[in-house]
């Protein structure tokens, strides 16, 4: 006679990946990945209860408003959506957030920032893209600068970063520029990711694994 024991049947979200696997590939510990899973479950069920983060849910979490969008939130969502299927799965969430971990190598942050700013996926940051991003920031911040000043800022930046002078910033030029100007990577690190379980005790779950 067959014997089946079912002490705990844990139903995970679609796209769930084992914390031990994700911890081995990222800057997070196993218990931190488990804590992130608690956060992920909240975010991914805030509107559509399918265990996947849709863009509206991402916007709701970022802005407290499901309909508010901005250029950078769209870009970050697209970069988190590694499979390019319009939703963020748990593994994608953890791997992408890991870029922002203080212990993640600077080179990874530089590469991620380049992809973020390469709006049209041409492999370069082009002048028009940079201007578009500056205008988006100004619009978002309710700051007004005349077109002339925006042109000055963009021109000045290209003078410093576009070493070949071909009107576009390639990944090597970006890397060099970012290393010379560390403040550019400030938004690529979230200090509290270093110990999520301390910073966000509400996400702490009883881990069965000792890190």
């Amino acid at each position: 006679m067959g014997c089946f024991t079912s002490k705990h049947v844990i139903k995970h979200t679609p796209g769930y990946e084992e914390p031990t696997v994700l911890a081995s590939e990222t800057s997070f510990t196993v218990s931190e990945v488990e804590a992130l899973y608690e956060l992920f479950k909240k975010l991914s069920s805030s509107i559509i209860k399918d265990g996947l983060i849709h863009k509206e849910e991402f916007q709701l979490a970022l802005f407290r408003n499901r309909n508010k969008r901005n250029l950078f939130a769209d870009r970050i969502f697209d970069l988190f959506d590694l499979k390019r299927n319009g939703v963020i799965e748990f593994g994608e969430f953890v791997r992408s957030l890991s870029i922002f971990h203080p212990n993640t190598p600077e080179a990874d942050k530089i590469a991620f920032a380049f992809k973020l700013y390469d709006l049209r996926h041409t492999g370069y940051i082009e002048r028009e893209e940079l201007k578009e991003m500056v205008l988006a920031i100004l619009n978002e911040s309710d700051l007004f600068l005349s077109n002339e000043f925006v042109e000055i800022i963009v021109d000045k930046t290209f003078t410093q970063a576009d070493l070949k002078g071909d009107g576009k910033i390639n990944p090597d030029e970006w890397e060099e520029f970012a290393k010379k100007n560390p403040s550019l990577l400030k938004n690529m690190t979230l200090p509290y990711l270093k110990d999520i379980t301390m910073a966000f005790p509400s996400f702490v779950v009883n881990s069965e694994v000792d890190d």
Partner: peptide
């Protein structure tokens, strides 16, 4: 610091639109 004294990427990196911290504020 005046916006015009920064380079464009510095301006962008200060953007609240890039602040992922709100994801954790639940």
């Amino acid at each position: 610091e005046q916006p015009t004294s920064m380079n464009a990427f510095e301006l962008i990196s200060m953007s609240q639109g890039l602040n992922l911290g709100n994801l954790f504020d639940h």
